[in-house]
Design a protein around this nucleic acid. Structure first.
Lengths: 238, 238
DNA sequence: CGACAACTTGACGGGCGTCAACCGGAGTGG
DNA sequence: CCACTCCGGTTGACGCCCGTCAAGTTGTCG
């Protein structure tokens, strides 16, 4: 099963698993679902009894303000657990939705709790995953709080490509952005209009080249410098 | 010992502990330290081998940009574990420092790992604490990304008072802010100048009254409305 | 009473939001 | 095959919120 293999690989990288751990994971009962783009998987306020593993496509988590403003708090790529916090926090404090068409696997909370109790290494891997999640949120606070538009977007591009590369998605410098400029704005605390202007500036300065939604990073060093990007907060090296 | 009792109480609220769990916690070897204000406890890039429990005073976690800009990503009050992520993420991705004079207790990582392995309830409580941490980060992304200065500061005040009340610190509406306006600015992505102006606006609108650094919330409902504050992201109710 | 940190206030400018119009490609139906 | 629609991207004009700079005030600690 494609989905579980991804999960096993990911968790094994987070905290080395024994063969028994792995076979316990492979025995997890799943509900596979193919989801259209822009579909809400979890809604703020719900009490979900299952967690959601993304194994194809892209997704994000977001919060809505009472004035209708939307803030995307994370993007997700294949292999990510979209709402790991629901293992121990019953109430959803934000929405989870797809960006593109996607395939997800639902896993019951109770199963994950049981697994993490019976297999400490799995528990540690899941815990570690949620800690890296939190580290990324911290960096995002920094990003929207203390960087200007150009840096924010450059940083977002760097993070996205770094994470995609880490799972072997796309080659080094050329990739398609799955999200619209409006979604980039919702992630960076900008308007889609200003995202557009800023992308053009980045292109003008020679950091990227674009055609449609595909982006070529022509000068990675420059882009990282503009975005004040240092990948260590991703904690990718075990 | 004051410090451990606080910890036991906090974890017990996060995930009910058995008497054995509690006595295991009470047996934790600690290093108590009294720390002056504005002292850095952990520095980004370090590989700390211990975690830090705050049991008196106030502290914060922050990141520095390459341009010198500082972003505070969380405030901490007595009872908080300041860097729980170091249990499983060796490298510090941000600074931890005191706001006021404080008393902290250092606990070795290895001890916490052992405890969470031998006592699953303790592990769950710690995990749950770090998930709530992450939920607060998400809300902060929303705060700095999608709210104007008035809302940001109102929200910050609401969160701070809600958390203080939850541990029985200060009465309902009158409290002393431990942080300077510059620190409020670093937390909300504003300059100290604009924080000052905005506090005056909040006072002018009748939400708060101030004298020195002590704040009286004269209209909590108004302040929560201005700050778009809904406490459920704090996950305080078990 | 001097020194220093923090707070306060005003003038000015710029980055980004807002509004509005237009363009271009993909899907849809006749 | 072509019109129509719709979504997303693009561009310009204009204005405001908040940053910057700078000076002054208050409070606290020695």
């Amino acid at each position: 099963m494609m989905a579980l293999e991804r999960l096993v690989g990911k968790l094994d990288r987070l905290s080395p698993l024994s063969p028994e751990d792995k076979s316990a994971l492979m025995a997890l009962p799943l509900e596979i679902e193919r989801v259209p783009r822009r579909k809400r998987l979890v809604r703020e306020g719900e009490i979900p009894d299952r967690c959601c593993l993304l194994f194809a496509g892209y997704a994000c988590r977001s919060k809505l303000g009472s004035n209708g403003a939307r803030q995307i708090v994370s993007f997700h790529i294949p292999g990510d657990i979209l709402d790991i916090q629901h293992i121990l926090l019953p109430r959803a404090d934000h929405d989870v939705q797809t960006i593109t068409e996607a395939e997800v696997a639902w896993i019951r909370r109770a199963e994950l709790i049981r697994l993490s109790k019976d297999h400490p290494a799995i528990g540690h891997a899941l815990w570690r995953d949620s800690l890296i999640d939190a580290s990324i949120f911290r960096e995002w606070v920094m990003n929207v709080g203390r960087r200007d538009a150009r840096s924010r977007i450059a940083h977002m591009l760097c993070e996205f490509t770094a994470r995609c590369e880490a799972i072997g998605l796309g080659n080094a410098d050329m990739f398609d952005l799955p999200m619209t400029q409006e979604e980039i704005g919702d992630a960076t605390g900008l308007t889609s209009v200003h995202v557009n202007r800023t992308l053009k500036t980045l292109e003008h300065q020679g950091a990227i080249r674009r055609s449609g939604r595909s982006v070529l990073i022509t000068d990675g060093r420059l882009l990282r410098s503009i975005g004040d990007f240092d990948a260590s907060y991703l904690h990718q090296a075990a």
